[in-house]
Every structure is written in structure tokens, then in C-alpha cells.
Amino acid sequence: MGTIVRFLYRLRLFFLFVLLETVAIVLTIQQSAYHQASFFNSSNAVASGIYKKIADAHYYISLRSANDSLATENARLLSMLYSDTLAITDSMKFPSDVLSYSFQSARVINNTTAFRNNFLTLNRGSLQGVRPRMAVVSAQGAVGIVKDVSDNYATVISLLNKNARISAKHTKSQTTGTIIWQGGSYQFAELIEIPIHVKLKVGDSITTSSYSNIFPEDIFIGKVSKVEKTDGASTYEIKVKLGVDYKQLTFVNLIDHHGQLERDSLETKLNFNE
């Protein structure tokens, strides 16, 4: 009798264990679903409130470098504004298309780089007009895509994430590929799908392509740092040094693409007709 009781007692523990693990696994899977605005992430009120305190402290400590980068950005904008030659090439480069995007600045209040899937939390939310699938960029280049939004906070899938696949192009040849991140160093990503007939050099710029319905065209992503050709493969293996230093991110811009919904629904129709 005693053995049976002990056996059942052990089994009861095992059931509790299985139950807890199931809950944990369900939560994990929910988290990775693209549009899941779940309670259990850092855009909920308590977590983001505490993160804001931590970020405020960090913000104060890093004021000096934040000022430096703002000053550099100001200088760059001023020089664009007052330089005649740039103004001309600018108006040729960006057609009226540029009007279909609007910008909004935000502060990064949490940021990870060590995991396989990394996220940022921003201090702007739906009350400020942020919605999922907005692009996030910094002065140094593309940062990520908005995932979940609460009233005053938003979480962002950074480029350092398995779910971030961003259409990119080699600027010189205008060939498009895809930027992915396979883990490891936060400074490097991979550019795939570039065929081997394209002439590539270390140092060439990689920017976002017009195929992306999230990022505007020609947003800087990074520079080619290593090119490899495997025997028999039809595409290069390219390592890209990212322009954004994820450890130094303080301010970012959110980009609202006004035509996004229209283009999305038009392109979805295409799939139905097939």
C-alpha cells in the first residue's frame, strides 16, 4: 500500500512538472508568432515601467555620447540643407515618393543583443500613432520592425533576430538579396541570394531595396566585409558589417509608410488569384 501511495505521489509531481512545462512551451511559441500582442512581454505596463526606470538611469549616464551622435546628425542634416549640389541630386534621387513616409523619433528603453532572437522596446506606442510593421531606423541605418504596440510602448524585432528577413540590395549593381542574421556577433549579418555573376567588393554598401513594403528604399544597412564563393553554388556567401551599433542605440526614428496597407492588400489579392 505504501509503495502505491509513494508511486502516486511521485506521479502527481510528474503531472505538475508536465503542466508547468506545457504552459512554458505554449508561452514560448506564442511569443514567436508575429502579431501576438500578448500580456507576457516587455510592452506590458509593469515590465515597461521598470525598464523605463533602468533606461532613465542609463540615459542619464550616456548623455554625453547621445549628445555627440545628435550633434553629428545635426551637422550632417545642416550640411545637406545648405549644400546646393546635394539639394539638386537629392531632388533627383527622391521623387514625390518621399512624401508617402512620415518620421517620428523615439527613445530605446530596452535592447538585447546576446540572444538568438533580439528585441528592442521603445517609449512610443499606439497613442503616439505607432502600429505594428512600422520600420525603425537610426542615424546609422536600418534597425528593425515594430512587432507589438501597447498604449505608450512598442517592441521591435531587431535585425538580430531569426524572424527578421529584410529585402536588401547591393547599391552598385542594384541586385537584390535578403539580409538575415544567423547568431553570433551583433556586428555582422549575412546577405544571401546575390548571384555570383555580380561584381562585389569588400566595402560596397548594402541598402534596403524597393521590394520591401516596410522600409523606404536606400536606407543604409551595412558594408560588405567578407565575400565567399563555394564551389558549385550559384550565389555568394556575403558577410555584412552592420552600420548600426546595437550596443550604442539611444535614439531611433519610426517610419510610417502611408501606402503600406494599400500595397499589402493589392499583393495579397495576387496570391488568391493564383
Binding site: 512538472f17 504552459v23 512554458a24 508561452l27 514560448t28 507576457f40 515590465a47
Partner: peptide, 27 residues
């Protein structure tokens, strides 16, 4: 088991990892 689960879940909420830490801690 329950305390370990809660500990892991707390870390998960702050790291956007769903229930990974909860699963590892419970194990």
C-alpha cells in the same frame, strides 16, 4: 517546482522570451 516556474517566468517577462526561462528553471 512552482517557485522555480515563477522565477523563470519573471525573467521571461523582462527578456521577451515567452516561457523559455520558465521551462528551463522548472526542469
Amino acid at each position: 517546482l512552482i517557485l522555480a516556474f515563477i522565477t523563470g517566468l519573471t525573467i521571461d517577462i523582462f527578456s521577451n522570451t515567452g516561457g523559455l526561462h520558465a521551462a528551463a528553471s522548472t526542469l
